[in-house]
């Protein structure tokens, strides 16, 4: 395995204690050139995760706090008239950064949400007729409060699909929480973190993810999963082909994180909760069921061919 990736993970684990899985998932998502949605209650370390990743990977970091009065221009930027030159000059918004944390994305209006999501999808921004590319690598981590809280605009399914993965942070286990409570202020630690990767290295890693080998036998497995979601009666609709591509990309990144050059069924199973849980809607009475449990059921239901 790439030693610098090891360092990245090690450093992140020092700050975010007891969440190695979430860190790896976030990293896999980034390596697969996807965007990440973290859904959980406030105060469980969503922001910290984003900051730590940005610092350790040496990425420019911007944070946008989404509120109900946020306008698209607040995200993308505006042109302002310059008296000196007599021209309009573009002032790029916070989206022009390598890593953008969109905090509490479901508190903003759909209009503001879609400005962000379009930029995520196209990796460029068109304002006043000029198309401006976003920096590379470009990685968005959006956080979202559980939608049953008051005053939120839940993202529609089509927007959710823009995120390669959705993960949950969850409460820390008692031991980790003890360390958190007794240790130093996390903000100080984050501020002191040194980058472990160059931008170019990260881009090279993203390239390598695409070259991870996928055998026909593994494709059989992925297709079996897709077919099961489409044929089983417990979901409102099955996974789309785009979801299949996302699953494969994430599994490749996961295999690379594990230091392997070929994808195993275990890799698929590891990323499946992140990739599928926000894309599958349970039917009927099961609607209230935890979506992660739903994915675990899916894994158990599909035999590896």
């Amino acid at each position: 395995m790439n030693p610098s990736l090891n360092n990245v993970i090690a450093q992140a684990e020092q700050v975010i204690v007891g969440k190695p899985r979430q860190i790896r998932m976030a990293l896999a998502c980034l390596l697969a050139r996807g965007h990440l949605l973290i859904e959980d209650l406030p105060g469980v370390g969503k922001t910290t995760l984003a900051q730590v990743l940005a610092r350790t990977l040496g990425l420019q970091f911007q944070r946008i706090q989404f509120t109900s009065d946020l306008l698209p221009a607040d995200i993308l930027g505006v042109s302002i008239y310059q008296r000196d030159s007599g021209k309009f000059e573009f002032h790029p918004g916070p989206i022009f950064a390598q890593m953008v944390l969109a905090d509490e994305v479901n508190r903003a209006t759909p209009k503001a949400q879609s400005a962000l999501l379009e930029a995520m999808e196209e990796r460029q921004v068109t304002i006043e007729g000029t198309t401006r590319p976003l920096p590379t690598p470009f990685f968005v981590i959006a956080t979202q409060n559980p939608t049953y809280q008051i005053g939120t605009f839940p993202l529609p399914e089509s927007q959710l699909d823009r995120f390669l993965m959705r993960i949950r942070m969850g409460y820390p286990d008692p031991q980790a929480e003890r360390g958190l409570l007794s240790g130093v202020d996390r903000r100080e630690i984050v501020a002191g973190l040194a980058p472990q990767l160059e931008s170019a290295e990260l881009l090279a890693l993203q390239q390598r993810v695409q070259q991870v080998f996928v055998s026909p036998a593994l494709l059989d497995y992925v297709q079996a999963i897709l077919r099961h979601t489409r044929e089983a009666t417990r979901y409102t609709h099955g996974l789309s082909p785009r979801a299949g591509l996302a699953l494969l990309a994430a599994a490749r990144a996961w295999a690379l994180l594990d230091g392997r050059n070929a994808v195993l069924p275990e890799d698929v199973q590891a990323v499946l909760p992140g990739v599928a849980s926000h894309r599958l809607q349970p039917l009927g009475e099961r609607a209230k069921q935890d979506s992660d449990a739903l994915v675990q059921e899916l894994i158990a239901a599909v035999a590896i061919p």
């Binding site: 195993l264 069924p265 275990e266």
Partner: peptide, 9 residues
């Protein structure tokens, strides 16, 4: 082995 269990697991 469970049907869905990968070799490593």
């Amino acid at each position: 082995r469970a049907a869905h269990e990968g070799a490593l697991d």
